[in-house]
Amino acid sequence: MEKAHYFRDLIPELKRRRLNLGLFFEVRAKLSKQQLRDLHDAGIRTIQPGVESFSTDVLRSMRKGTTAVQNVQLLKWCKELGVTPFWNLIYGFPGENPDDYEATAAVIDAIRHLQPPYSLGRVRLDRFSPYFFDAAVLGIRDIRPDRSYHHIYGLPDDQLANLAYYFEYDYDDGRDPDTYIGKTRAAVQRWHGEAHHDGLISVDHGDTLAVWDFRPRALRTLTILEGARRAAYLYCDQHRSADDVTAHLTEPGDRILAELVQDQIMIHLDGRYLSLAVPRPASETVH
């Protein structure tokens, strides 16, 4: 079968036909802004991106092929373009560093103006998954049918093992992820509790960029960016390195980037800089 080229064939055709089908797509988090805009214009307003973590090390262990800053970038673009992402935050991967979850909590506290996860949960072991077939190599032992199967079927363990699709398991190193997930869990709870606020918004007026911060505990409600600060902020709508920004500005950008991060309107993650405010047209009223 010929490889599907969704953004070349299907998405433009959906846009042309204007069918208003209310389609839901599962997507990778590496979408470009134009691809996300194409989905929106084709009538696809709800997606399930494979975000699942704000730690690049954890994402590597999952073989996701994405980074933490790419995940944040996608959530920001979704809010800007009117696409709702339903996604999950997952923990408990064999060999993960517990310290990554303290860093994850800090990332979450910086992006609570974006769409929160549908759920926070420990990684599930399913039949046919890499953790099922390569358990010993990946640091998993004592795989057994989920306890719910005993209540439903009442069969011997060997028969349940052949029947089950979901499994419980232990870690080779004896870890219990719930002992180190506390700060991330609390950060997610804060995120859901504050999902109603107006967020972090930027409005470009040409010579100046107004950044309105309505988040709880914001340093200031309004920050006006001009000149190189405005240029750097707009350029980092997509995540950039400090060298990228300096080349774009034709002057050193390190000090400017550090100030924007200190002002809590930009994030420095994975060695990259990403503006956090969600752009809004100047024609819209900001309250």
Rank of each mutant, 00 (worst) to 15 (best):
Q35K: 15
R37Y: 12
H40Q: 15
D41T: 03
A42S: 13
G43D: 13
R45F: 00
T46E: 15
T46M: 15
T46D: 14
T46P: 10
Q48N: 12
P49H: 05
G50T: 03
V51T: 14
E52G: 10
D57K: 12
D57N: 07
R60S: 09
S61C: 11
R63K: 14
R63S: 10
R63M: 12
G65Y: 02
G65C: 04
T67C: 06
T67H: 07
T67R: 08
A68E: 05
V69A: 06
Q70T: 07
Q70D: 09
N71V: 08
N71R: 05
V72G: 03
L74W: 06
L74F: 07
L75I: 06
K76H: 06
K76A: 09
K76Y: 08
W77F: 11
W77I: 01
G82P: 02
V83D: 01
T84L: 09
P85T: 02
N88W: 01
N88M: 02
L89F: 12
L89G: 11
L89S: 07
Y91C: 02
G92T: 03
F93N: 04
G95H: 12
G95N: 10
D99S: 15
E102K: 14
E102N: 13
A103D: 15
A105K: 13
A106W: 07
A106H: 11
V107D: 12
I108A: 06
A110T: 10
A110I: 00
I111K: 02
R112L: 12
R112S: 03
H113G: 03
H113D: 07
Q115D: 13
Q115C: 07
Q115G: 09
P117E: 00
P117V: 01
Y118E: 05
Y118G: 03
Y118S: 09
